[in-house]
Design a protein around this nucleic acid. Structure first.
Length: 288
DNA sequence: AAGTCGTGGAA
DNA sequence: TTTCCAAGACT
């Protein structure tokens, strides 16, 4: 094993957060739910929603039996509500094709709706203890600094990154899983994007970026995401109105939620196309 | 392959 | 106040 593993495992043992989807009570399904929710959404906001979600739908079958609109409603304000739809769709596939059991192999998992390379690896590793490299934004950043000496990883995952992550993976399955979650936790708590606290890093003495004097990121500038006035904001407004209403919402109420007629109409259409809303005789509603 | 898709807390 | 962005997936 390389010289990074022991200090990383010891650090994780001492500093890991206790989260509902970790530990003995976690199930592959609770891990899967957490991974969907954590896609682009901070831990602090996921925790309470995950807790309620698991009470309502403790198994894939329970979720699959519910209307997809209930999943969207329970998703609340986590953002990117299509993830709720995809999780519901994935639960349906799990019931129909996997006898209600979350599959354990990466290849089966990555075939599920809403499950990409990261999420498939995370479920296989954290849900089942399979040995597989897990490349999320935290791991990528930590390895970029620690091994390569760059402040930030490339915009898109490269084959070099994947090979590097696989090369560093401990041979033992359980140890490899802890290694991966430790890298993620370090990236989330210590080796953060903006202001890393290297004084708290267990492998700072081996860090290539630190040794090089913290050279600044020199890759292509990341595009700043605009927000005000975008379709995303408009869609969010419309969804919020419908989500918080127990009854179908007449279009007159949606008119008040967004003033630009053309944009509102365009967004409404896209929400219907996405399956996030349906049109009923008395107004717009979450899908049944 | 570059754009799109939500949200709210922190800097 | 404005800006930035947090465990990605999909097209």
């Amino acid at each position: 094993m390389n010289d990074l593993v022991a200090p990383m495992l010891a650090w994780y043992d001492a500093h890991a957060r206790e989260l509902p989807w970790r530990g003995e009570h976690a199930t592959p399904w609770s891990v899967m739910v957490s991974e969907f929710m954590l896609q682009q959404t901070p831990v602090a906001r996921v925790e309470p929603v995950h807790r309620l979600w698991m009470e309502s739908w403790p198994t894939p079958a329970a979720l699959a039996a519910a209307p997809s609109g209930e999943a969207v409603r329970a998703w609340g304000r986590l953002g990117y509500p299509r993830r709720a739809l995809r999780l519901h769709a994935a639960a349906t596939v799990i019931v129909e094709a996997y006898d209600g059991q979350v599959p354990s192999s990466y290849d089966d998992l990555v075939g599920l709706p809403g499950v990409g390379p990261y999420t498939a690896a995370a479920i296989a590793v954290f849900g089942y203890g399979e040995r597989h490299a897990v490349l999320d934004t935290n791991v990528r950043r930590v390895l970029a600094r620690l091994v390569v000496g760059d402040e930030l990883p490339p915009v898109a995952v490269t084959s070099a990154e994947r090979r590097r992550a696989e090369d560093l993976l401990p041979q033992d399955d359980a140890e490899a899983a802890t290694w991966s979650i430790a890298l993620m936790e370090l990236g989330a708590l210590v080796c953060t994007a903006a202001k890393p606290t290297c004084s708290g890093c267990p492998v700072a003495d081996q860090c290539a970026w630190r040794a090089a004097g913290y050279p600044a990121y020199d890759g292509a500038p990341r595009k700043a995401q605009t927000w005000a006035g975008t379709d995303r904001q408009c869609r969010g407004r419309l969804m919020a109105v419908v989500r918080e209403s127990p009854d179908p919402v007449p279009s007159s109420r949606l008119d008040r939620a967004w003033s630009d007629d053309a944009q509102r109409a365009r967004c409404l259409t896209s929400l219907l196309t996405d399956g996030l809303l349906v049109e009923t005789a008395v107004g717009y509603a979450l899908p049944g």
